[in-house]
Amino acid sequence: MKNLLSEKIKQAKRQKRKLFCVFLTLGYPSIAATERLILSSAAAGVDILELGFPFSDPLADGPTIQFSSQQALKKNVSIKDAFDVVTRLRKKGCKLPIVFFGYINPVFSYGTKAFARDARSAGLDGLIIPDLPPEEETEFQSECRKQKLHFVQLVAPTTADPRAKMLVGKSQGFVYYVSLRGVTGTRKALPADLKAHLLKLKRMTTKPVLAGFGISTPEQARDISRMADGVIVGSAVIEHLKRGVSAAERFIQKMSQAVHGV
């Protein structure tokens, strides 16, 4: 099975296309809505989808994703549901690269080896585990490599240079730059040191560097796309989703235009 994320990145490089990555919480407001939103995201020109798996204690997340996670958990969403959604989408011919985003405990509880195998056979292309640095669960990380499930590493504003080099070296697919000190959630302004950090990271690697955390308006998305290889938008999508699926779809479309208009 081809890794759609690798394909997408190669293609974006050739076309000098910026990457727009959308985060959704699986099961918020319902599993059916998540499925519909993934399909409409693909149609809106979204390049990568982060399928957020709800966790009871999302300590890297702000109030918005805490809320969507709690709502989704009321429906007892399981890892198997995540795999089933992706399997169905792939059967429908959805070619959007999908990256699993979730905290380590539900993955650990599922069994890390089984997770890597089942995620890949469902058609997931990568994963992001915000509370799993490369020093922990190393067997799981090498199992993911074996299964060609791309393990995306995060780099933060507080990451020292030697460690940043190590992380971009290990990261597969793209590098996730955490654009601010803090949790996920919309912000009026992004930190002043963002540009300097992005430039520094881009000098370290040829892998695309995507910025996420805090990006909530088309203006911000456009500005950051000038400095980074793409942007990741999560909480702002969920905020629109609170008003309904179509509101979120319109927002995703607007953001996609902002990113790709660059």
């Binding site: 300590l59 890297a60 380590i104 915000p130 509370d131 799993l132 640095p133 020093e135 922990e136 590493q153 995060l154 780099v155 933060a156 504003p157 507080t158 990451t159 020292a160 460690r163 992380l167 955490v178 000190r181 803090g182």
Partner: peptide, 12 residues
């Protein structure tokens, strides 16, 4: 044990 933290906290 170990250190399962978001990257932002690794330095701290």
């Amino acid at each position: 044990g170990g250190r399962y933290v978001p990257e932002t906290l690794v330095k701290a």
